[in-house]
Design a protein around this nucleic acid. Sequence first.
DNA 1: CGATCGATGTCAGTCACTGCCATCACCTTC
DNA 2: GAAGGTGATGGCAGTGACTGACATCGATCG
Lengths: 192, 192
Amino acid sequence: MARWEPDARGRLQQAALDLFAEQGFETTSVAQIAERAGVTERTYFRHHADKREVLFAGSEDLEELVVAGVRGAADGVSHLEALVGAFASAQDFFDERRAFVVARHQVLAASRELRERELAKLAALAAALAAALRARGATPVTASLLGDVGVAVFATAFESWVVDGGSLAAQVRDVARELAQAIHDDTSVGER
Amino acid sequence: MARWEPDARGRLQQAALDLFAEQGFETTSVAQIAERAGVTERTYFRHHADKREVLFAGSEDLEELVVAGVRGAADGVSHLEALVGAFASAQDFFDERRAFVVARHQVLAASRELRERELAKLAALAAALAAALRARGATPVTASLLGDVGVAVFATAFESWVVDGGSLAAQVRDVARELAQAIHDDTSVGER
DNA sequence: CGATCGATGTCAGTCACTGCCATCACCTTC
DNA sequence: GAAGGTGATGGCAGTGACTGACATCGATCG
């Protein structure tokens, strides 16, 4: 028999999500999270770098998935299409976890500190995407811009997926179309 | 004669910037900043909400300036052009403070925590721009996307302005052109 | 069976941040 | 011009996030 219950990390994540949802992020202490997970505060900090990070444990997985999607895009595919396809391929990732993802999203929306951390994660994702785009021939500036644009498109699509449900992939495509339209119209107007 | 030296807030900003540059953000304590500014730690927290915020005191001014630029754009001007014009009009704001802005930028670049806060400020700027775009007729989704895109363009242009100097307005326009090109090419390819 | 390892517990300590109350130059009011 | 109000500050105690150092002990390896 194991000396401790297994999966302390997972228990900490669940305890944190529940407590943040019940009573808010700021009014929850790390000691409380640890207690509910059946470990000490010190053990919490061995598994999660700080109080916020516990809600972002899966973010490396998503980043790997989406970056792999860009790297796997065929050569003939445009950069923007590669991004859209990569995000669309993450659909299963979210569908499999919908209840958790939605609950987490509501907790994030309620806390300025947590939203701040989410922005940092999205910025890291954008940087990773930019690197992948450079690897397929985009100039540094274009790659960086498109990385940011891709993340903005995804974030917008994600928002409506949380609210309305449906196909995340389809929503990513719709939002990307709306963006291309907006930029294209602008450019046309500008060239008049 | 005043009971205390005036402009405690400004002294705190200068002391913080200097100390962060000298010895790094993490290894500087708020007590140190307060001491160098000639006040107590308690007074620091009356002027700045937390240890990071001291470097973002002017950010509301920039936001007002750029938002006013969008609101002041003529009706016939496209949304993207309105954004580009608004950021270009902030050129003086940056030129007047170049030494401070560049030093601050280097401090930000060296600290993960400070970069995180900067992302939050840029997100607030993007949201304010989106509201201004909605006021001139953009749909909510388009406004939000273009807000993010505008900030991404500005951030890229700002980066090269810090490194190379020159005209920030011209760099904003160049980056916006490169973005429109990238999206336009993508869209064309997609329509083939 | 003994040495090592890995995950945890324990404890003391630093530092960011807050609430509460005192102080005191300056200003208003009668 | 004396009494009282105001605003910016100091002082101090307290909470909670986070860290370093060391001890514990079941599991594993040789």
